[in-house]
Design a binder for these strands. Structure first.
Lengths: 372, 372
DNA sequence: TTGAAAGCGTTACCAA
DNA sequence: TTGGTAACGCTTTCAA
């Protein structure tokens, strides 16, 4: 039923090996032969059998991209950039024609592990993990173990916007007691590469911006607890406060939520209840910040006249859509493209870390002085 | 180096066949044997070789999902819903564990075809095409041919939010003269299934809403020309105008653009220049509508006091973020889930068309009467 | 309930 | 420059 290499070979009057060589273009073939083969391919509408080819070549052209929330443009932009870089229409010569598999983990460490297993099973060429990872020691250890196995299987691992989970100390396979008999790796494998996002610097710049405007009572709507991104952004915020000689944000002005709009809405209401006199709110990301704006509107407050709102640049147009919203512009496209190039093996730094692009504050309509 | 079935079999003291049966769970195996095998799998950290298994079984567990713009939450929501339905954590029993491959076409018919070839090459179990398709006859024919080949290869095809491109009339393979010698299909294959979005009904409801508010000078910012979605939404708009006994929207109030924010911004300015007295603008989608809101703000106009703005529900929170924006709520999640179930083969209607969920108008702050 | 063995369609090595 | 031919790792009859 299906057309195979042999069919093409027969029609072109050559051997299967020759057809393979023509198709892969990695071996010299006489011009006449080549065109004969190509014509046969056309006529028979032949399409390579990927699984067979992957089996024989011991590698596939699949690249996994894990995202926390596919409905969030933040990840959409990164995933799109990765895909553009490695995909059918790539700018990296002789590397393209790979297929990006975008996997939506929903922020769940379990699903993350499940997807990684699935990708390992597909013998993916590379795996790109984007967005924040969990800080939970158990999950980190499990993730580290899985990444180790992926690397051992020749899968290139790229961490985009999150740090590499540390391996367990002590003997090999410390994280998995049952793995004592697992086979050893047959040589040095490429280590995971980090393509960081400057979460800490961005949060610091964001807070410095608010402080420069004269704000002192700043509510902080942080992301989910136990996430690397949350931790880094919080650290940046604190660094700015400290550098300005100010006390750290008090507990009642620091609320943990999610990266979603609802969380921003609810969090803003709680912050206002906790301190009706606050003049600024820093949100976990733009999506949450938009929720903050809505909450302020519903409370009869204006943005930024009454309260300045800031967030991370998850939605490129957020600052424009919600007047008064100040965001940190993270270089999402650039980061995604860098991750894509690393996944292709085209850009692997010595120390395993691609230098991050600096985050920039996009101030807009936020020059109003704080209230009384 | 890598652990294979044989390794597991040896360790468990059984044959490879038995291990395969245990792993696939589609064959009776003694409980004792099963647990012995599973333990060996654990101990060796065995992960199935997907390509090998796909080759032997002549089918893979990959499902392709094509989207026009991965950075647009509209597609993110649909893609996420498809993935949730078919993916590792699925609610459809005994069907899950499939891997969704989300492909970003950027709205380009060429990239669409390229991705379809790539997916055919991977022997994908199913392919889901989402969002508007091109109306260009050449591309439609090429797409129809490719879909036919996919179906012939046993790939289930799902069209989500767009109509099935018609086959060429006349003899078989009419669209591809060079294919005269292509092999015949070896039996009846499942035809593509349509999971529609009610674009026409939504546009009609949107326009009716504006008309009911008393608007008569309505600017229409349509989507890209030659796209099915654009055509359907335009048809709904016109139907509402006609049903109300009104003349069709004049040419100078009908502008084609893209589905992006910038297009909405620029288009709104053009519309205002063409008719400074218009009282409402219907945009191609929410993203463009947000751009319209920004343009109105920059022109010193208020929404909806001076101009009512409407759009399709690409961003769930758009109406909430931009006060005065009225949207049509398309059942994106439901549609995506239906598409996922169809892709799994769990829901295939007789006539090949899943009934669409109705679109609903989400009115908000748009009760202001028109100016003048 | 289990095992042996024949493919599945490519790739890549070795000759020619 | 080309052809023959082992792998590649799994699934799936067919027997036992």
């Amino acid at each position: 039923m299906t057309v195979t290499l042999a069919d093409v070979a027969a029609r072109a009057g050559v051997s299967a090996a020759t057809v393979s060589r023509v198709l892969n273009g990695n071996y010299p073939v006489a011009t006449a032969t080549r065109s004969r083969v190509l014509r046969a391919v056309e006529e028979l509408e032949y399409v390579v059998n990927g699984p067979a080819s992957s089996l024989a070549a011991a590698s596939s052209d699949l690249v996994g991209v894990l995202v926390n929330d596919i409905a969030d443009p933040f990840f959409g932009i990164i995933a799109g950039a990765v895909q553009d870089t490695i995909g059918p229409v790539t700018s990296v010569p002789a590397q393209g024609r790979k297929l990006a598999v975008i996997c939506n983990t929903g922020g769940s460490p379990e699903r993350e592990l499940t997807y990684l297993t699935l990708l390992q099973r597909q013998r993916a060429a590379a795996v790109v993990l984007t967005g924040s990872g969990t800080d939970d020691p158990g999950h980190r250890a499990a993730l580290a173990a899985r990444l180790r196995r992926l690397a051992a299987g020749g899968v290139r691992v790229v961490l985009c916007g999150r740090p590499l989970p540390a391996e367990e100390h002590g003997g090999a396979d410390g994280a998995d007691p049952a793995a004592g008999t697992a086979p050893e790796v047959d040589g040095p494998r490429p280590r995971p590469v980090e393509v960081p996002l400057d979460n800490e610097g961005g949060a610091r710049a964001l807070t410095e911006h608010l402080l420069a405007l004269g704000h002192r009572r700043i509510g902080h709507l942080a992301g989910p607890d136990h996430r690397s991104t949350t931790r880094h952004r919080l650290a940046g915020h604190r660094a700015a406060m400290t550098a300005a000689g100010l006390p750290p944000t008090p507990d009642h002005l620091l609320i943990h939520g999610t990266f979603h709009r609802d969380s921003g809405y609810a969090g803003a209401l709680r912050l206002l209840d906790a301190d009706p006199g606050l003049t600024a709110i820093a949100a976990a990301n733009d999506t949450a910040a938009l929720g903050v704006c809505a909450a302020l509107r519903d409370r009869g407050l204006r943005v930024p006249q009454d309260v300045s709102v800031t967030g991370f640049d998850d939605l490129p147009f957020a600052a424009d859509v919600a007047p008064g919203l100040t965001t940190v512009r993270l270089p999402l496209r650039e980061t995604g493209q860098a991750a894509g190039r690393v996944a292709l093996g085209a850009e692997v730094p010595e120390d395993g870390v691609v230098p991050p692009e600096p985050a920039r504050v996009v101030a807009r309509d936020s020059t109003a002085p704080p209230r009384g």
